[in-house]
Design a protein around this nucleic acid. Structure first.
Lengths: 336, 336
DNA sequence: CTGTTAGCGCTTTCAT
DNA sequence: ATGAAAGCGCTAACAG
């Protein structure tokens, strides 16, 4: 593996017999000053022939812009993150940026400020943060660094890119209420997760308005967490007849607990997942879900950091792409 | 958000009243020449107080090393990648590198050479490739760029970091053979995926040696792929009594197909997954799996690119950390 | 139209 | 023990 030296601007300048700045102008398509077309052609051809690639380091050092974004995601197995990543990756590529995905190294999420070093060391121009919690340790934010919070709101308004969780909850409640359910549960992650917070708030408001009895259970965003929450619900004997579940991992636990206790789905309990995933269609009881515009969220987040990097005025954004209910077989009429 | 300028070496040099080179030496702990301890203290203190962070760009430009690695993973929902990522991230951090995770933008994997631009543009020092296929389009490799293939072998030997797939298959076959099974199926991804290739090869060899009848089915690495493969197996009427499944997503499809056809697990068919995941314990029939050392693979891959970046002699590596069979309830004795 | 010049922030000989 | 100077590869005024 002969790691040969990459061709530089000066190499192609010498080959053509002009100054580097001329080459730079041509290669950057500088519209200000024009270059003799034939020379331009020659430079372009030589660059191509030498396999020239601009050194991102040198360029970034000069331009004071790295052309990279850092996307910090929690260490969760939940597939929603890959969909968001995909949206972000694509939009960033369209806008000439690369995105480096940083995963939280441990199980305890670092406060968002932990990642400012990426910008301070000029490794990235801005931060996409999907890890903020509603917790004192996270209240400091990331002052002085271009950033947005993705799918979670930060400690203060102004840099949030989120989806319409309340709309998702309304979709869920409308669907089960339409089947006659009047006692409903929401099993979701820790209240410190902003997405969860907004879902529970919306659920309380909507249920109050529609005269639906609501029970909320917070649990770890894992299979075991879902199991415990569902189990405690059943033990408490307040048995709701329909239940929304915040994440795919919890859903597996919920379905297992219901199965273990002999609670039929949807005969005795209707279930809806707030994460859509292909695998839901293949479970022993295929599970109805609310599909959210995750790729669009990722793309919108990229747009949002970029406007901040470019120091243009910006505010919170709520992704308005449609979400939809994916009906499968886990929802039925309310038992008498 | 007042994006204030980051402190530079020269800022702290001026504050202390020394030359930048002195500050650089102190901050880098240069062992060659010594600096007056009190001065050293002062410099360190000032740097800390100013919140100095070295500009990775400038440093990299000078050192001709970026301190970054790019890890290219396929766009799959399979959770094995997050485990590998975790291992890689941690090891890289220990060794002073950051890793940027690149996900394939589309569904068709790019040939590995597509990513050489990351090194050529000095965005990364080396490549971790988890996307190579056994296909003519991928045969070119990535000459001239430090790289390793992770969990897949490249077009030529010498840069591969893999796990003992053959050992995993042996674990599976030993387990089911121990339960009396003599007709076994392997449902796995496309043969162009090297991991799949090695598993099928091992399965054929071991089955031949042990007098086990083997049927192999290749399918898309998705729920639907698993469904079709299992279904075609049942339709063909050659009904094996045990079956290994290459990926978690396929597994959902396989279980669904078996359920749909009324084939009891494990009564009529024993099933083993080659991906371990927590959710397996919560399925209607908890599924036995082979757990592989994925985090160790990620870490080993980082070590491997780094030796290549440092131009030290290096060869293929097989991660030797133990794998284990996780027994659950999807394997039973061979029916009479 | 094209060349000259001056850095971006840092490391690293080479002097002193 | 510390300073001076050169330069990594590129861009962007400013000249001519």
């Amino acid at each position: 593996m002969t790691t040969r030296r990459a061709p530089r601007l000066i190499d192609i300048a010498e080959a053509v017999g002009v100054h580097v700045s001329t080459v730079s102008r041509v290669l950057n398509g500088d519209p200000a000053q024009s270059v003799r077309p034939e020379l331009s052609e020659l430079i372009l051809a030589t660059a191509r022939q030498q396999g020239y690639r601009p050194n991102a380091l040198a360029r970034a050092l000069k331009r004071r812009r790295t052309g990279a974004l850092a996307f910090v995601i929690p260490l969760l197995r939940n597939p929603i993150w890959v969909r968001m990543q995909r949206g972000a990756l694509q939009r960033a590529a369209e806008r000439g940026y690369v995105v480096m995905i940083m995963e939280e190294p441990g199980d305890e999420p670092q406060p968002p400020g932990h990642y400012r070093y990426l910008v301070e060391e000029s490794r990235a121009d801005g931060l996409l943060l999907a890890t903020a919690l509603r917790a004192p340790a996270h209240a400091a934010g990331v002052p002085g660094v271009p950033h947005v919070y993705v799918n979670r709101r930060g400690p203060v308004r102004g840099n949030d890119v989120v989806m319409d969780e309340s709309g998702a909850v309304r979709l869920f409640l409308g669907h089960v209420a339409g089947q006659g359910h009047r006692r409903v549960a929401l099993i979701d992650g820790p209240a410190a997760v902003d997405t969860v917070h907004r879902r529970t708030l919306a659920a309380r408001r909507i249920c109050a308005a529609r005269g639906i009895r609501l029970i909320v259970r917070h649990a770890a965003p894992t299979e075991a967490g879902g199991w415990e929450a569902a189990d405690s619900l059943l033990r408490a004997g307040q048995s709701p007849t329909a239940c929304g579940v915040g994440s795919l991992n919890q859903l597996f636990g919920v379905m297992a607990a219901l199965r273990a206790r002999g609670v039929g789905v949807p005969a005795a309990m209707s279930v809806v997942s707030f994460d859509e995933d292909e695998c839901l269609a293949f479970l022993d009881v295929p599970v109805t879900s609310v599909a959210m515009p995750l790729a669009e969220l990722g793309a919108a987040a990229v747009d949002a950091v970029l406007t901040r990097i470019e120091r243009e005025p910006a505010g919170d954004v709520m992704v308005s792409d449609p979400m939809r209910l994916v009906p499968r077989r886990s929802v039925g009429r309310c038992p008498a």
